[in-house]
Design a protein around this nucleic acid. Structure first.
Lengths: 347, 347
DNA sequence: CTGAAAGCGCTAACAG
DNA sequence: CTGTTAGCGCTTTCAG
């Protein structure tokens, strides 16, 4: 069957203790036996049984990560970064998806706790009292991750949603827009926060938010591209024509741009358009799209660091929350010839 | 500390054996004690230690899945389906990404084997002898997964690449195309196979493959959208104008369509365009794009089933390979008014 | 430098 | 129906 320490030990007339020491790189073994042991391990393809080790040591060197979905790059990008940075500290990650089902999420949490993860990272899909209760009873260190981390008053790393709207709007202001429209996403906390940032950016420079240039959350189809097309159509009919449009997603922005182009509008000179998400596939077509990048890699890195800090400090350390800022990526859809250099300088 | 069986046992003046039996739902426990035990488990938030159980039983009820990347929906879509179908059989999945690094892939394999996965599913990024050797030495049941499964003469589930090209080309033939062009992807096994299927489809109906309407693998930029734009440009200058174009990816197809539209060509009536991948974000814009769907969910399901079969039949069962067929999704970019109904009927 | 003993939390096999 | 014994593969502790 499978090779154990004992097999190597008897092969070499040693005790399994010595094998264990070699395995873990302890210093009190002669160079010669060490070499013999390593040699035999190679030959037999020995692989330590981590279950057994964990049972003894009480730690698994594994960390659970539960995300809402694997179908959305938002989560996989964060996950990739978390995995990468935890691996540097020799931790493995048990990655699960809750598939946006609260019930499945709960089961995955239980499952990972049963597998004795040393810490748990949760990008939750729900805000139920039941979950809050559950997360309070567990001993395992827990870090909440965007989205949904806002609701838990504990260790959390989140994306600064408000700043997304602010960044987009103030960029348009800087390239000279005076009548800035906003195509909002479907009703959600994130959508509200981005809109709040948007309004703040306008009011800071004395511009007012025009209701006729703001779409209601539920007045448009949920399909993003179509949503953008219809929003643009509405703006084209409006009394006040916008000269800049902030879109809740990149795909909405593409719909907007297509409709505006069809109507003969020049982008970016007549109307500048900016999206959110900085999706590589969507931002490099026809008129390359300026977008607000969510800094998902940074979020993952901060999360990994917070977890490691928690693990290092034994005992319930102080609650710490981190909010990561999005970044602006300027491309053709907002690059007006006269303003471009100024704006690049401010990035 | 953490709650163990023993705690519940002493609390209730029982032996831990009884607790174990309740936990596993064995029948030889009185309803009354069973209720008491379950009650106390709830109260104390007891969670069985899976490391300990695995050590004893020799199985972890976990299965390793290693994919080349988490950044590409091809892999995450397969992974989601694998996870879903293995969960139905009560297995957890340890999901890792090799990030396209052969070295990391090898380390992840070792890691998962050390964690005693009951079986391993590998969508490999490499074809090295070293890896083939490694996979031959391990005792753990192994299933190879698209892509890269071709090279291993063992349990494998693969996508029928050749059929992708065939499906796309024969669809264009059916809607009446006579001069079908092909925009190939960068040099790869997959690209060659799809092209092979493409040629087969044409020759089956007596059409010839025209060199001037086939792009060389390396003659164009690697960036897909731009690749499509330039390919279309070349076709527009060609002596023979194509009336249908098969594209290696959806993004290439978008580039192609944009360039053709700019040149005033009508899609689909003058030129029909079809992509591969059926990416939801990319296929629903302007002229909705017909595409060949890779049936990734089906691949995942077949993989899960093969693994479960392997696990059920103890002993080295016969090698089994499955090849999953892609499917055609017809949208506006190939829907010619006169031929549409015929074609829909054949789907 | 090497090794013997004990036990992590759980369950298989068998007794009562 | 309930409990006893033994041991999974490893590491901690302490003795040679």
């Amino acid at each position: 069957m499978t090779v154990r320490m004992k097999d190597i030990a008897t092969d070499l007339n040693l005790s399994k203790m010595t094998i264990s020491k070699v395995l873990r790189g302890q210093m009190d073994v002669s160079a010669k036996t060490k070499a013999r042991v390593l040699q035999r391990m190679k030959e037999l393809n020995y692989r330590p049984n981590i279950s057994a080790r964990s049972l003894r040591t009480g730690q698994t060197l594994s960390i659970g990560l539960i995300v809402p979905s694997l179908a959305d790059p938002i989560y996989t990008d964060m996950a990739r970064s978390v995995v990468k940075h935890l691996r540097l500290a020799n931790y493995s990650v048990l990655l699960s998806s809750a598939e946006f089902e609260p019930d499945l999420e709960r089961r995955e949490i239980e499952q990972q706790l049963s597998r004795q993860v040393d810490a748990l990272i949760l990008a939750s899909v729900q805000k139920s009292d039941e979950l809050v209760e559950l997360t309070r009873t567990i001993q395992t260190p827990l870090v909440h991750l965007y989205p949904g981390s806002v609701l838990f008053k504990s260790n959390a790393v989140d994306l600064h949603e408000e700043e997304i709207g602010h960044l987009a709007a103030s960029h348009l202001v800087r390239v000279g827009c005076r009548r800035i429209a906003n195509v909002r996403g479907p009703e959600s906390v994130a959508s509200d926060l981005r809109y709040k940032g948007f309004r703040a950016a306008l009011s800071e420079v004395g511009q007012r938010v025009r209701p006729e240039l703001t779409t209601e959350a539920d007045a448009l189809p949920a399909e993003d591209y179509e949503r953008g097309v219809l929003a643009a159509e509405r703006f084209l009919k409006s009394k006040v024509q916008p000269d800049g449009i902030v879109c809740h997603t990149d795909l909405i922005a593409l719909g907007v741009m297509d409709r505006l182009s069809d109507a003969g509008r020049n982008i970016p000179n007549e109307i500048a358009v900016i999206g959110c998400g900085n999706d590589p596939k969507l931002c490099e077509m026809r008129i390359p799209l300026s977008s607000v990048d969510f800094s998902l890699g940074e979020i993952g890195e901060q999360t990994a660091k917070l977890v490691l800090k928690l693990l290092a400090s034994n005992g319930p350390s102080k609650v710490k929350s981190v909010e990561v800022s999005p970044t602006l990526v300027v491309r053709a859809s907002t690059s007006r010839l006269d303003k471009l250099s100024t704006d690049r300088g401010r990035r």
